[in-house]
Nucleic acid binder design. Structure first.
Lengths: 226, 226
DNA sequence: ACAAAAGTGTTTCTAATACACCCATGT
DNA sequence: ACATGGGTGTATTAGAAACACTTTTGT
């Protein structure tokens, strides 16, 4: 396997990544956007993203762009590629394909600020975003769909919360992501019957009756075991 | 929105597409492979694919590569992007990302031959393929998973068959894709209760009792209608 | 007549839904 | 005491799964 050069028909397209980073704030599903500081679309809100470096894996590039452009410090709890947007005219500068990633940031990720070429960064309601640069509105819609599909599957909702949380908080994540109300009793039945939560024995105070705290079960219960 | 040139940090990576084209032959799920005629991996089986042209949409490139490399003439019944493989070292020639597509070819797609740089083309058992070039084994596995997930959803199984077909044939598609046996009675109940099939009134002859022919319902029955 | 493949019903179990009241705490 | 939010149980329905024999044709 000798090292060859790319053949002449290889298109030197620009290779970019964009990141749709979700988090829960104020009981709402929010998405992290940056204000572009350079052309095209200067001073327009956009998804954090940029060009992939030559010796950088796609997910590394996504992580780097997220960190540099928004100054978030916490590790994303999930970061996965979900679709590649490659329409010929999607970027006025030339042929640029963007491998779009979806990220979930844990609770506590609030402070963000611009970095690199971004003038600023901020959180916006994911279901009603401001006007966005390029085809980023399409990318966001597509990410929302994927997030909704993956919510049940794979305990994804837990990634939005701190280590311990109450059932009403967890239900809030479901409702914010699915953008609809759920029945409290059925929700609890469904979640608890899966055996993936254990009570943390403690209670959190506030207005009204305190809620039981839960955490992810250290070892997931197999069907048939106690 | 003026036309700018790509900034210096834009990586000129090679942009390729690969196509995992499935079809049913001899009661088995098969995948279309080509024998590479040039380096690297010359004389190794690989997925049909190649570089995207500068003014070509991704799905157009996938369709072109499928046609040129394998000489298939029929239109794919489904052709959709499913994942982008971009590991830095996946191609010894340099940085090449491949937007992988999954295709379903209808019944009757049998004759294939090499074209372009492909020495030959052929059908192989999708669940036990020969050794493949690059990371194509991983791409194939990934496509199989996606195919299985999408099988129920969207009447995908019908795309493997000719316009009219028998229920045992349809069940054969499910069994071949899922790689497991299904119960005949439950299968028929499930499919017929969806109201998406109508009998074609005719019967096909062969060994044993002839089977009823079906076709996709011209207008899908809505819940509540007759 | 027999071999081969198509066709057919019932029972059981599980999961989803709809729905209304009592409980524990802070003020 | 009351306002606030947390917690609980039952009945109904729909879909999934398990399971064996009869029918129609060609030879």
């Amino acid at each position: 396997m000798s090292t060859l050069i790319l053949p002449p028909q290889a298109t030197p397209a620009g290779l970019a990544v964009d990141v749709v980073a979700f988090a829960m704030h104020a009981g709402e599903l929010q998405v992290l956007l940056v204000e572009r500081g350079s052309l095209p679309h200067a001073r327009t809100w956009a998804l954090p993203g940029g060009f992939v470096h030559l010796n950088e894996e796609l997910h590394e590039a996504a992580l780097r762009e997220l960190r540099v452009k928004t100054s978030v410090e916490l590790e994303p709890r999930l970061l996965e590629q979900f679709y590649t947007f490659g329409a010929v005219q999607r970027d006025p500068r030339g042929r640029v394909v963007s491998v779009a990633h979806m990220a979930v940031l844990p609770h506590g990720t609030v402070k963000v600020s611009g970095g690199g070429t971004a003038l600023g960064a901020g959180w916006f309601a994911a279901h009603s975003p401001p006007p966005l640069a390029f085809d980023h509105h399409q990318i966001l819609s597509s990410a929302l769909e994927r997030l909704q599909v993956r919510l049940e599957y794979a305990l994804l909702a837990l990634e939005f919360l701190p280590e311990t949380f109450t059932l009403p908080e967890l239900q809030g994540v479901y409702e914010a992501v699915l953008n609809k109300r759920l029945d409290k009793r059925n929700f609890r039945k469904r979640l608890l019957s899966q055996g993936i939560l254990t009570t943390s024995g403690e209670r959190r105070s506030g207005v009204g009756r305190p809620a039981q705290l839960y955490r992810k079960a250290s070892r997931v219960r197999m069907p048939g075991s106690l």
